[in-house]
Design a protein around this nucleic acid. Structure first.
Lengths: 114, 114
DNA sequence: AGATCATTTTGATAAAGATCGAAATGAAAT
DNA sequence: ATTTCATTTCGATCTTTATCAAAATGATCT
């Protein structure tokens, strides 16, 4: 991942509605959600939501696909994981007590180690 | 973690110099780096860098501590991990094929499963 | 105490992003 | 082919953010 892509992704997530929207899609899973459904759930006007969806899509964080009359949006999980990996890249310069049990470990990893 | 804190953290990271700065600190580990050293490394004027450091500090992503004449900055690893956890919270609504082997798994987790 | 050094605040300017109603687009259904 | 429905683009306004030189701060060393 390059810096520009990471900045775009982080900037896309750094906004109230877009963050809520992305988390909604992350939790929705592979089946995704229709744009209109999302707008209703978040209580945001359609035009505003469309703007935010475009931001997330341009940042590569969501994927879109037409299904019947609606357009379905899904979280792009690999992109999310790449972003996280980029943030933590070479954490603590590879010190021994870093990855295994302390600083550079996500909650999910902790559960596995414990 | 609350949404406001996550937005602040993401917004703090969504900027060229601050992202480079934070990754520098993540890689530097617990010993941290002095403000002046960072400014020199990144090629950013002191006043600009101070502004960016303040943003990251207010967002809770870095910690500061005086050491002799310099002020040392360190990455706040728990804050970073909390942010990542917030993004991935309840990923795929707990579907079986999500956490274990596919979508909602960071590269680090994949290594452990493999 | 006074000098020195690293960092932060100020202030003014320039650039980017958010909001939402109304109009336009574009595909699917009848 | 025409209607219908979901979503996107436009346009105008407002708020937020980035930049950096110069001055101010604030702690350390002599």
């Amino acid at each position: 991942m390059k810096a520009d892509a990471a900045i775009a992704a982080l900037g896309a997530l750094a906004q109230e509605h877009r963050l809520a929207l992305f988390r909604l899609l992350v939790q929705a899973g592979e089946s995704g959600l229709a744009a209109g459904m999302i707008a209703e759930t978040l209580g945001v006007p359609n035009s505003s939501l469309s703007f935010h969806l475009a931001q997330l899509r341009e940042a590569g964080l969501v994927l879109q696909e037409r299904q019947h009359r609606s357009i379905i949006y899904r979280a792009n999980y690999p992109a999310m994981n790449a972003l996280v990996a980029y943030l933590m890249e070479n954490c603590c310069a590879g010190a021994a007590d870093c990855g295994a049990g302390a600083a550079c470990e996500t909650p999910a990893q902790e559960r596995k180690s414990a």
